[in-house]
Structure formats: structure tokens, C-alpha cells
Amino acid sequence: MIEVKNLVKTYGDKRAVAGISFKANDGEILGFLGPNGAGKSTTMNILTGYLSSTSGEAYINGHDILEDPIAAKREIGYLPEFPPLYLDMTVKEYLYFVYELRGCRLPRNTHLKEICELVKIDNVYNRRINNLSKGYKQRVGLAQALVGNPNVLILDEPTVGLDPKQIIEIRTLIKKLGKNHTVILSSHILSEVQAVCDRIVVINQGKIVADDTADNLSRELTADHKLIARIDGPKDEVIKLVQTIPGVVSIVADMQRERGVWEYNIEAVEGTDIRRELNRRLMSRNWYILGLRSSELSLEDIFLKLTMGESVNEFLADKADDLEERYKEEE
């Protein structure tokens, strides 16, 4: 279990972390979501004892990281933003070193073999880390965090630099680990934390702007009223037609995807579903919808939404107007 109370970290007069409090329970995967520079890594560095907080407290399974650092550190496996690898060592030598460094008591060879199979690095076990690809290096970093089977795993952007197949593998692995570990993982990708985490803490400019279950948060953050549609039909007429649908706020032609097929960003008043009406009207003119999906909120939109509350809709409408104007100018 991890408990953080009112954590503050200042660098000079800049506040990197400005009073963060949260709790991660046993067997929970907590996602730390925020843009670069939001204070995610700083918070993680404080939790692992690499940095000291300016004020506030952090407990790892009841051990205060400042008062009793060695006991607290024994509970933590940490994968920092840049995996801390000795490039001149082979994977085997490196893991042996970490094993000894952490004073691990589990049977060495079987324990390390298990970890390597888990993160799929057994095929590069005897290669020098320097010669490994970014994806493998990342996984060696993850393996390092698992040595000694710590109760708490703190993973700073664990899927950065991996290819899509590896990302899925690592996510599955983290989910599996989450069953009997407390996991905190950070990311700046919304879909990633949604896919893996039970709970999400959204952090921006050193402050928590949301702390909720993944389901609740995603319900709040999906944008059914914003559609991206691919429509086969004459562009200007399609725009005119769609604008007459009740509830539509704006429609902007994005770009031509196929011959005669344009992609449009359509925004309706929040809470209205215009998909059926859109279908009906286009069908009556014999134009076809070739693709239709609701647009995902970008991280920027989420922060706007979470930090600005109601005024965000006006802001987004303004933004849509800007786009439209720019589009007209281009024409």
C-alpha cells in the first residue's frame, strides 16, 4: 500500500509538485496521467527515495520513505523514466548485480529465470545491454524492478519505446502483476492508463485534477457528441446538409481520404446523439457514410475539461470556429 500526504517539491522557486495526496491499495493498479512536466516523474522519484520532498509524507507499506528509507526501499521495485542500465554488462551480469544489491534471498537462478521468462528477455540473457534494442533495454529495466519480488512496483512510462506488439505484452504483464502487487504506473497516453489501470489520478502542473476509477473517468471524458465521419458525397453540399441537422454545432471538412470521400469533424451539442439523423439525411441524397467514430478527447482537452469545468464547451466551440475560419482562408 502506498500513501502520500500533501507532497510538495520545489526546485528553486518552481513548484514541480504542489501538494499531492493519494492512496494506492494492495492489488490495485494506479495510473498516473499527465502531460510531460506535470510532476509525474518527480512524484515517483520521491516515492522511491531518489529525491526528498520539500514537505509532506510518503508511506510505502507503512514505512516512511524519509524516516525509514531502507525498509521502505526494500518494498519497492522501480523502473525510472530512463532504465538505469550498466551498458557494459550483459543482461545476466546486470541482473546478478541487482540481485545482490537488493540483498535478495530467493534462489537466484530460478528467480532470475522466472523474471526473464516473464518479461521475455531470456533469449538475450547473455548479450551485452549496450547492443540491445530500445524495447529490450526497457524490458531489462522492468526485469530489474521485479528482482526480489517487491510488493510495490513503481513504473515510470513503462511502454515508451516499445512496438505495438510489445506494448500489448507489457500491458498484459502489468495487469497480471497488479493482482498481487501494488502498481503505480505513469503515462501521458489516456488509452494506455484506461486499458491497464483500476484507478486513474490525473495530474497537471503539480496538482491532482482528478482521482477516480478508470470507468467513471472515461465515461466523463468520452465525447459522443464529437464525431469523425467519412462521407462519400460533394463536400460543400454535405456541409450544408449536415448543418441543418438539429443539434449540430459545427462541421469542418478535414481532408480528402479517397476520391470524392472527405473526412469531417462534426460537433453537436453535448448530450445529443445525431448519428441516426445523420444517416437518414445522407441516405435520402444517396450519399454514403464510409466510416463513423466518436473522436477521443486529447489530453489537452481533458485538462481543459477537468480544470475549466463548464466554460470548456465555449472554449472548444471557439476553437472549432477558428478551424473553420482557417479552412475558409485556405480555400
Binding site: G49, I70, P80, P84, V98, L101, G103, Q144
Partner: peptide
Amino acid sequence: RQKTDQLLLTAPIS
């Protein structure tokens, strides 16, 4: 420079 100090300083050693 190699950021390996993060490994050493977060390990349970003094």
C-alpha cells in the same frame, strides 16, 4: 550521467 544512480539510490542500501 548514465542515470544508474537511480538504481543505486533507490536500492535498500545506505
